[in-house]
Design a protein around this nucleic acid. Structure first.
Length: 309
DNA sequence: AACAACCGCAACCGCCATGTG
DNA sequence: GCACATGGCGGTTGCGGTTGT
């Protein structure tokens, strides 16, 4: 038995929204708040005349689009509100800084547009997705092509699961380059966020949630990813519970930020090998593409699996 | 001027995760 | 534990505007 559709499509308007529909939806949400999208169209339409025409509530009946209920699917209403009508939305004119941040976050997160949008106030996931598809995606592809044709190609996109057959061309350490894979869980859950000011805590002191329970919710996943994407963190530390801690020193704050990770690459030419107990401290320069599925080799490779159950 | 090709973006669709009874 | 409702997300579509021929 299949799922029932989100709503019946019969008799509903489709395509571009009219100004009147926008008004109905906006005024309803301003009066009643967001949510309950499924029932919103019916309720919004029936209240419309009293909102806009308190002295002559039957006037809208003479309009071309008689609002006997907002004739839109609830999902469509939600999308229209979130992507277009919300008052705090910025539209167009994506700045150079925003563009750079999008590129960095996309390297880090892949096509997780809502996560990326969460780091750009006033921008919607749809706008960023469109912007990427029409502008940045082309740039990124062109850049990748020029990089792949360049002999000086450093970075994890080069990491190969094939055995290395050539000798290192210089006197760099000859640790074998390999990728590691943590136990794969989606990177959507924060284990126990902690935040400390530098004057309040010794650097490298490992905090526990019990140390400062009132600060547990101060940071969220997006902020952690932002810190990493801007390379503000000094290093990451593998813990023994399938999470990574970022430590940020310098500037005015120091924090430990454990969070779950999905999977990552590590270039071991730039890092010490993990201890047997699966603890390792990693330089950020080796983690540029972690969480990016596209860079994950298709072939089976030696994996570091974090904490096995 | 007319048409085709291209482009940007709003909107739609289907799937998945989560909440609820 | 199950079924269903709902919200959220990312991929895709198609319309309307712009540019090229």
């Amino acid at each position: 038995m299949g799922r029932s559709p989100c709503c019946s499509k019969e008799g509903l308007n489709r395509g571009a929204w009219t100004a009147l529909e926008d008004k109905i939806l906006t005024s309803y949400i301003k009066a009643h708040g967001e949510g309950k999208w499924r029932n919103l169209p019916k309720r919004a339409g029936t209240q419309f005349p009293f909102i806009f025409f308190p002295c002559f509530p039957l006037f809208p009946l003479f309009l071309e689009h008689t609002p006997s209920g907002l004739k839109r699917c609830g999902k469509s209403c939600r999308l229209r509100w979130l992507n277009y009508l919300r008052p705090d939305i910025k539209r167009g004119n994506i700045s150079h800084d925003e563009e750079e941040l999008i590129i960095r976050l996309h390297n880090l997160l892949g096509n997780r547009w809502s996560l990326i949008a969460g780091r750009l106030p006033g921008r919607t996931d749809n706008e960023i997705k469109n912007y990427w598809n029409t502008n940045l995606g082309k740039k990124a592809r062109a850049q990748t092509q020029t990089q792949s044709s360049s002999p000086d190609n450093s970075g994890l996109k080069k990491i190969s699961s094939e055995p290395q057959t050539t000798e290192p061309s210089n006197s760099q350490p000859t640790l074998e380059t390999k990728a590691i894979r943590t136990k794969a869980t989606r990177c959507t859950k924060l284990l126990y966020p902690l935040l400390q000011r530098s004057e309040e805590v010794e650097p490298n002191h490992t905090l526990t949630p019990q140390d400062q329970p009132e600060l547990q919710d101060e940071w969220n996943q997006n902020e952690v990813l932002d810190v990493i994407s801007r390379q503000k963190a000094d290093f990451l530390t593998f813990g023994s519970n399938d999470h990574v801690q970022t430590s940020i020193t310098g500037e005015e704050q120091y924090c430990l930020q454990p969070f779950e990770i999905e999977e990552m690459f590590v270039d071991w030419t730039k890092n010490p090998c993990p201890e047997e107990d699966n603890n390792a401290t990693l330089g950020l320069d080796s983690l540029e593409f972690f969480l990016n599925d596209e860079d994950w080799p298709s072939q089976e490779i030696p994996c570091f699996t974090g904490n096995e159950n």
